[in-house]
Amino acid sequence: MKKSVFLGALTVAGIAAGGASAGTLDDVVARGTLNCGVTTGLVGFAAPDANGVWDGFDVGICRAVAAAVLGDSQAVEFIPTTGKTRFTALASGEIDMLARNTTWTFSRDVDLKFEFVGVNYYDGQGFMVPAELGVTSAKDLDGATVCIQTGTTTELNLADFFRANGISYEPVPIETNAEAQQQYLAGACDVYTTDASGLAATRATFEDPGAHVVLPEIISKEPLGPLVRHGDNEWGDVVRWTLNALISAEELGVTSANIGEMSMEAGNNPEINRLLGTEGNLGEMLGLSADWAKNAIAAGGNYGELFEGNIGENTPVGLSRGLNAQWTDGGLLYTPPFR
């Protein structure tokens, strides 16, 4: 019995490790689809619509990468992952990249052997409470029952915040956002805590969003970004520069509306020319076609368009750009040059 248990464990580990070989780019091209890990459903970031088609801000990143690599933004297999399963899925090679509100931390980058390719949303952990409780600050939450997604950095931040402020709380660990929503709305917990963007997205789906307030305290830095496995630098470069292309496109004024016209022939802005492949050979260096960035931007628009279309102020989620504005507008988005 003991032997078979060990054998099972070793088989699992052996297969898992065996799948994580190098050459993801070749694998994706050979397969013809990109396996992209997303959340199990967070409106605005990644959620299937009424027709079962995945849509959202993180989904947009997956589609841009698929368009850059395969030339087809629909060639994506979306794999829903929970806070707990996401890293195993990526490490085992089940998914090629993970675009799932994942915080870039030292230990995940270094110890868990992943490669964060950049930041697509600068976030911070917040608290949501029902307005009727009359709570105005997170420091008033002494003794509260807090719903929290297990396996996330928010779990650690929460413990640190309450310990630092010398107040107590009762954690209620849950697996998915949907369960958290159910427990929170039923009053089984007083507070729901996760990234502020996630809170806004969750609140947007409530029947009466006005009855819930997001507290002013942001207790952590949560730079969220897509990540790939450590050790496959070619693939990491592809995902990193696809994200950078989307951000640069906004800065350079390239949108899904004018991209057809701009990529027809070289214009008078050399950086745009290099980005869109009408000048230089950046695509070739990545091992992609010359119009890789054009395809990526055409898939769902530039970063600004993705933001406004999925989570911006005119959507139910209603997030302002804030830190996620271009550096020219006082935000943190700043990409290295395409040169």
């Binding site: 580990a13 898992a16 890293f87 230990s107 995940r108 297990t150 396996g151 779990e155």
Partner: peptide, 23 residues
Amino acid sequence: IAVGYMDITGTLMGITLNQTGRE
């Protein structure tokens, strides 16, 4: 873990696994 009860699967094989990456 389906109901958030912190047994050995929830602590050692759940959160600890996730935070340390030692599958």
